[in-house]
Design a protein around this nucleic acid. Sequence first.
RNA 1: GCGCCCGUAGCUCAGCCGGACAGAGCAACUGCCUUCUAAGCAGUAGGUCGCAGGUUCGAGUCCUGCCGGGCGCGCCA
Length: 591
Amino acid sequence: MSLFAQYRDVVLMAVASRVDAGELPPGLPLERISVEPPRDPAHGDIATNAAMVLAGAAKMAPRALAERLIGDLATASGVSAASIAGPGFINLRLKPEIWRAEVSAILRAGIAYGASAIGGGEPVNVEYVSANPTGPMHVGHGRGAVVGDALASLLEKAGYRVTREYYVNDAGAQVAALARSLYARYLVAVGARPDGHFATLLAEGAVAYGGDYLIEAAQALAARDGSQWVDAAEDAWLPALRDFAVERMMALIEADLAAVGIRFDVTASERALVAGGGVDEAVALLAERGLLYTGVLEPPKGKLPDDWEPRPQTLFRATQFGDEVDRPLRKSDGSWTYFAADLAYHLDKFRRGFRTMIDVWGADHGGYVKRMQAGVNALTGGAGALDVKLCQLVTLLDGGEPVRMSKRAGTFVTLREVVDRVGRDVFRFIMLTRKNDAPLEFDFQTVTEQSKDNPVFYVQYAHARCCSVMRHAEATLGAAAATDAALAAAPLDRLADPAELDLIRAMAGWPRVIEAAAEAHEPHRIAFFLQELAALFHLLWTRGKEDTELRFLNPDDEALTLARLALVRATAIVIASGLNVIGVNPVEELR
RNA sequence: GCGCCCGUAGCUCAGCCGGACAGAGCAACUGCCUUCUAAGCAGUAGGUCGCAGGUUCGAGUCCUGCCGGGCGCGCCA
């Protein structure tokens, strides 16, 4: 339990004892009480809004209510002072040994420090990337991949049972178009058409996917199947080529993702879902609940599609669940819309035991959120909840100049190109330096330079400095004295400098960051926490440069040295713990 | 036209499901290297939190309207 959770209990006990004593009425809204670090550290170590949030129900002035509570709080274990401030805040000052004990706790917990049980083992499904299997990943996909993966790790750290999932859209028109593009490449590969044939088709718009990656795929297809498809009818070759292409593209995508250290527990296929009758089942369920009807939609406002014509179709009553219009489930050719299949897919997730589902999408899918949430709401009878994290665009720059698009990939700069250039750790960290709904600028020059302009480096450098100190310590004191177990028993009361206590307080906040970020589904908070923690460590380091008394290694005072080594080691552990959640390897040396 | 997201210091952005004088980095100016990696640190300066109302003891945070930017708007996914 985090320190703040512990003191929340202390506050609750103080309230309960005043209720027992008849000084406060029963039935107060205790859930509104928060216990957190005050924004201004000068106010104390721990602040609670208890008096203010209970004032209404207790029919008392906040400060008067605070007076009732403060006696119990001032004498609570570990509290050195309690005061009432401002509109009715109660500020607690903790004895320094409470903070110091946190250093031992970190050393004993190791990289697991910060783990929480608030998830209570509840299953959560995080679906991310889910790019069409039509080509290599581009950087935009990479952002969603990192956000989803870090969010999944974050939730695991907070005690949820997480499934990482990829939904393969292998049933729609996109993959048919992919198969046609592959066929055109194939005809060239087996020599049935001249070299320029593909370029001509592409220019005419007869094929959709012009990326070079289909050349290799076509050669592989030719090697496997020879020229058997050359004179075949489309009906004959399309299914075979589609399967071949999807399999090939998924291998490509999985390799790209592996380069960023991302893997999935479950890969769900849209085609398998449709073939297995999942869509019929979901649609039947909606029909059963009276949520389907046949109707004609108004034409969309704004840009009207060229071939718009009103026609009756099967509609889902999404408007009953907060959507703007009712949504079609069938295309004019009788097949299911993507939305229908996605409904079935989310119903499937729910039936697999996930009441909480999180989808990470690109911002261009923003218009799709309400209908999907409406669908989940309808299909689960309100028991399932879908949260959608929309990732805004990534703009690639090089020294402030926009990066030109790559021909090889078709249109976009590939994820692989970027990761090969900057490394997976840099890529992952930078992708979390903005909240997901803000656009992100990714400048090759900035993210690879070694200065404090580069947040990845800045955090890594703090960790490397910690490791450097430990290496020096081991050289003089011996490895046995510098183990985590040995340091946990160091005389921590020697840590008395305000800058040292500031660092400890920040580290003690790590469990809170995990819990708050997990509840908000916001992995970027970890990156910001790490930057703050690194800053505090760099500050302390430089103080030691200026004032020999504050140096970590003090040859004349071994007890003091051990206490400070405990602090340094704890810092390294918390940084590593944070980097671990976002999937970045902490480095031990930067040379 | 409608929906979603965004609007915080000159620039890039935080701001923890309303809380105590609004934070950081960059850029600018001033300092700190015989000492654990100066690839760092400290200080100074800089903001009507887009605008106008509303709810509240209390609003950058919630509600309404407007302004500005991005994304999207049957038979694509």
